[in-house]
Amino acid sequence: MFEVKQYDAVVIGVSAGGLAALGEILPQLDKRIPVPIFIVQHVSPDSDNFMPTHFDSHCHVSVKEGEDKEPPEKGTVYFAPPNYHLLVELEKTLALSVEERVNYSRPSVDVLFDTAAEAYGDKLIGIILTGANSDGALGLRKIKQFGGLTIVQSPETAEADSMPRAAIEATDVDHLLPLSEIGVFLNSLLMDKGA
């Protein structure tokens, strides 16, 4: 019998071109989506919480900034705060840190992916979107090693293609998807599991 695999969380790493890319994906997500979604979007250290506020009013799911020690809830999107790394503890609560920049970035995609891979193991979906650096490539590889599902935005649909290309080079990714299909894909993958 065909067994539908269950996933417990989604992590997304995105840099240059992120506002438009996330603006395509996040509003498509079903509000009953049964997992939390964690996002590292590279932003300048002194930016405000525009992104979570903006998306919260344009999406079916709720969107907020991740807080230290917060237990994540399904149907909710958590952004890493500007100038803080976002981590996931093994108990699946969120944690923040101001340790050194990783890949010149704080928040860094690798830090989120690395800790989420350990916390969620093969129940994790990792997604790399548009960006002009290589942050997230190692993190995505770790998600794959731990049995999670890896998705990369197809470089030709990315505003900046180096981040997707670096991820593809580092990992044998499971799905290369055009930007327009990622939201729908997540819905079908995650919403069908009771069927």
């Binding site: 981590l87 503890e89 840190s97 340790e99 800790t115 350990e118």
Partner: peptide, 9 residues
């Protein structure tokens, strides 16, 4: 100390 952080260090 918070575990994920300690482990990374």
């Amino acid at each position: 100390y918070a575990c994920a952080h300690t482990k990374r260090r």
